[in-house]
Amino acid sequence: MKRLTLLLVALSACGPELSASARLPAGVEIRGLLPEQIGAVQITVLSNANARFCGDLVKTCLNQKITVGEDTVPVRGADGKDHNAIRESGFTPESLTGQGVTFDISVPAGTNYMVVAEILSGDAKLLASGCEVRDEVAEGNGNSPLVIRAQPLDPVPACDPRID
């Protein structure tokens, strides 16, 4: 009975906060994608963008739609090495849902690139995905920013999105 009493006390105090949560602006909960689930953001750059369909690529794990190593453009990581994709973690929920997080991606100068951003959960599930095309990436640091809007996936696909 003591346990029941404690639980009743605890639960009875939940009302106001739950109501407040329900009044949060639409989208803060991001239709089932909960920000603190975010484990990492994975960015992959693809060649031959005009031969690809963004809407098709972002419905499931990118690695199921492409041939890693052939379709991917090498992205230079902070370790100075080239990777098929880069993964960054440690974002606050607000950063990804608000202004967004900006990455400086180091790739070979080239044309007809497609950039895919995948939001991974802490246990390596694909929570959201988005992509954008950039016609030309010029040598140096003068390229204008590319904004990718990642759409939450519901249901979460049963695939491992990691690209190594």
């Binding site: 900006t102 990455f103 991606i105 180091s106 790739v107 988005g130 590319l146 809007r149």
Partner: peptide, 12 residues
């Protein structure tokens, strides 16, 4: 090498 700034936002 080129640097491309990529901003990722989760669509609200």
């Amino acid at each position: 090498q080129a640097t491309l700034p990529v901003t990722v936002r989760v669509q609200q």
